[in-house]
């Protein structure tokens, strides 16, 4: 009986969390324009969605910014993680604190501070500013994905490669990179997901005529509810869900291979963005 009540309580919370999503998804197939009635199943909104210039353009922008910023952030972030891994003492502390600023800072502050910078530097607001902003908030998450892999790395491997005559760069490519690759890929996917998910920072750093999907959703939602938006929401939900599953399956595989970490880290790695805000102190203590 107690167990039944307990389960019911959790199921009610799930209903609260999933009802809006379920309603949006089912409305995206509703032929009636008014939400009050069910006019039969249709794919009309999906067809119209793909004919909508504004929405399609923002989709391209989102993908372009997402892919480019994730790639650049992964390169800079992986290099940074290696440097951080090799550094000690105050230097390490300084860089790690720097890494946590954008993670802990409210998004709106990151957004407006970058906006001020871009105006100050007289940059034209548009793709470039959007890209710079996205790279900036992505790099720390790449670092936080790669660092654990570096900690698992056997230090002697790199030394051995050097002893056997490998140049440092060659040793990095052939010895270190393959070992930390899972972390790098996870960081890349995380960065991409965060980028396509972002609204606040994009909102302050984009220029006229350049909109990501989030920005388009925001401006359309304020003008009233549009069935095409429901179709778009459904597609984005499914896309993010797929990405999330890929990332988590990867992490699960890594964790099986590696030593069993404690439960908290497992849970928090699922949370992704949430984790970074929370692992901070413990991570620092482990160092």
């Amino acid at each position: 009986m107690v167990r039944f009540l307990q389960r019911t309580y959790v199921y009610l919370i799930f209903a609260f969390l999933y009802a809006p999503i379920a309603v949006l998804i089912s409305l995206s197939f509703n032929a009636a324009r008014s939400r009050g009635s069910w006019g039969g199943f249709t794919l009309q909104w999906y067809v119209e969605l793909f004919q909508d210039r504004v929405i399609m353009n923002s989709l391209y922008t989102t993908l372009f910014i997402g892919i480019t910023s994730a790639l650049v952030a992964t390169i800079i972030g992986t290099a940074a993680a290696i440097g951080i891994h090799n550094s000690r003492g105050w230097q390490k502390k300084l860089v790690m604190n720097l890494t946590y600023i954008p993670v802990l800072n409210p998004e709106i502050v990151t957004g407006i501070s970058l906006m001020i910078l871009f105006v100050f530097a007289k940059l034209q607001f548009g793709y470039l500013t959007l890209l710079l902003a996205h790279i900036t908030f992505n790099i720390p998450y790449v670092i936080l994905s790669v660092l654990p892999k570096l900690r698992q790395l056997d230090k002697n491997l790199y030394e051995a490669a050097l002893d056997l005559g490998a140049e440092p760069w060659y040793a990095f490519l052939k010895v270190i990179l393959p070992e930390i690759m899972p972390g790098v890929i996870t960081g890349l996917l995380l960065a991409f997901t965060l980028s396509i998910d972002d609204f606040v920072v994009s909102f302050f750093t984009t220029g006229s005529g350049v909109a990501t999907l989030s920005i388009t959703v925001y401006s359309m939602a304020r003008r009233g509810i549009n069935p095409k938006l429901n179709a778009l929401s459904t597609i984005m939900f499914v896309a993010v869900l797929l990405l999330l599953i890929i990332v988590n399956v990867r992490q699960a595989q890594d964790e099986k291979k590696a030593r069993r970490q404690n439960d908290k880290e497992n849970t928090l790695s699922l949370v992704g963005r949430a984790s970074a805000a929370d692992i901070d102190p413990e991570w620092m203590q482990q160092q």
Partner: peptide, 17 residues
């Protein structure tokens, strides 16, 4: 975790509906 990864604008927009 899953709903948390849906764009928060869309989730908020869902409540509007």
């Amino acid at each position: 975790v899953i709903p948390m990864w849906m764009n928060f604008l869309l989730r908020t927009y869902a409540w509007l509906t």
